[in-house]
Lab assay of single mutants.
Amino acid sequence: KQVQVGDEKYTFDTPEEARKFAEKVAKEKNLKVTEKNGNFHVE
């Protein structure tokens, strides 16, 4: 599963790991997490 933050992409083995990372980054940057096709976008 992938997490996209701006132009950066991070790959994780499980959706749970990806979601945790996305939520942590979103909180730090005051952004929101959206899920698209099983991948997460922080925007």
Rank of each mutant, 00 (worst) to 15 (best):
H41I: 15
E8D: 12
K36T: 11
L31K: 05
H41R: 06
H41G: 06
G38W: 00
V42H: 03
K27Q: 12
T34H: 11
A22E: 06
N30H: 11
A18F: 00
N30Y: 06
T34C: 11
E28F: 00
Y10E: 01
T14L: 04
E17S: 07
N37D: 14
N37S: 05
D7R: 09
E23L: 00
K1Y: 15
K20R: 13
H41W: 15
A22V: 04
D13W: 02
E17M: 07
F40Q: 05
P15T: 14
V5Q: 02
T11M: 12
E16S: 08
E43A: 10
H41V: 15
G6D: 07
E16A: 08
E17I: 03
K32Y: 07
A26Q: 03
K20T: 07
V5L: 08
F40I: 10
E16G: 07
E35T: 11
T34W: 08
V5K: 02
V25S: 03
T11Q: 11
L31Y: 07
F12P: 01
T11C: 15
N30E: 08
E16D: 11
T34S: 10
F12V: 00
E43D: 12
E23V: 00
K36G: 06
K27S: 11
E28A: 09
V3L: 02
G6N: 08
D7N: 13
K20Y: 07
A22W: 05
K27R: 11
E17C: 10
H41F: 15
A22T: 00
E8R: 13
E16W: 02
F12G: 01
K24L: 11
D7W: 08
Q4K: 10
K1G: 13
E35F: 09
F21Q: 05
E16R: 01
V5F: 10
E23A: 01
T14H: 03
Q4D: 06
K24I: 10
P15A: 14
F40H: 04
E16C: 12
F21W: 07
N37A: 03
A22Q: 04
V25K: 02
E8Q: 13
K24M: 13
R19K: 12
K20G: 08
A26G: 07
E8G: 04
K29W: 04
D7S: 10
T11L: 13
K20I: 12
K1F: 15
K36A: 09
V3K: 01
V3F: 01
V25N: 01
L31E: 06
E17T: 03
D13T: 08
K20F: 07
G38T: 01
N30V: 04
L31V: 08
A26R: 00
V42F: 06
N39M: 13
F12I: 00
P15F: 13
Q2C: 15
N39H: 11
E8S: 09
Q2P: 02
L31S: 09
K24G: 10
T14K: 02
F40V: 06
E8I: 14
R19M: 09
K1L: 12
E16P: 00
Y10H: 07
E43Y: 10
K27D: 07
F40E: 05
D13M: 07
E43P: 04
Q2I: 15
Q2L: 13
T34F: 14
N30L: 07
A26M: 04
Q2A: 11
Q4N: 11
E17Q: 10
G38F: 01
G6V: 05
P15Y: 15
K36F: 11
E43R: 07
K32G: 09
A26S: 07
V3N: 01
K29A: 10
F40M: 07
Q4G: 04
H41T: 12
N39T: 11
A18H: 01
T14Y: 03
V3C: 05
K24Q: 13
Q2V: 15
E8P: 03
Y10I: 05
N39A: 12
V42C: 04
P15D: 11
T14Q: 04
A18R: 01
E17F: 01
E28G: 07
K9S: 12
F21G: 06
E28D: 12
E28V: 07
K9N: 11
G6C: 14
F12A: 02
K20N: 12
Y10R: 03
T34Y: 14
L31D: 05
Q4C: 15
E43S: 12
V5H: 05
A18G: 02
T34N: 09
V25Y: 07
G6Y: 07
D13F: 05
Q2N: 10
E35P: 04
N39V: 15
V42Q: 04
T34D: 06
N37R: 00
K32F: 08
T11I: 13
K1D: 03
Y10C: 09
K9L: 15
E23K: 00
K29P: 04
R19E: 09
K27H: 11
K32R: 12
Y10T: 02
N39D: 11
R19I: 08
D13H: 06
H41A: 09
D7A: 09
K32L: 11
T34P: 04
E35I: 15
H41S: 08
Q2R: 10
T34L: 11
E8W: 11
K9I: 15
Q4Y: 15
K36V: 14
V33S: 04
V5P: 01
E17N: 07
V3W: 00
D13I: 05
F12Y: 02
K24N: 11
K24T: 11
Q4S: 11
R19S: 06
Q4A: 08
N30K: 08
T11D: 10
V3R: 00
A22H: 01
K36R: 14
V5N: 03
V25H: 03
Q2D: 09
K20V: 07
K32Q: 12
V5Y: 10
K1P: 14
V33A: 05
V33I: 12
P15E: 15
T14F: 03
K20C: 12
E16K: 03
K36M: 12
N37M: 05
V5G: 02
E35G: 04
E35R: 08
K27M: 12
E8T: 13
E17V: 01
K32C: 14
F21T: 05
K36I: 14
E28W: 00
N37V: 00
V25R: 00
A26W: 00
T14M: 03
P15I: 14
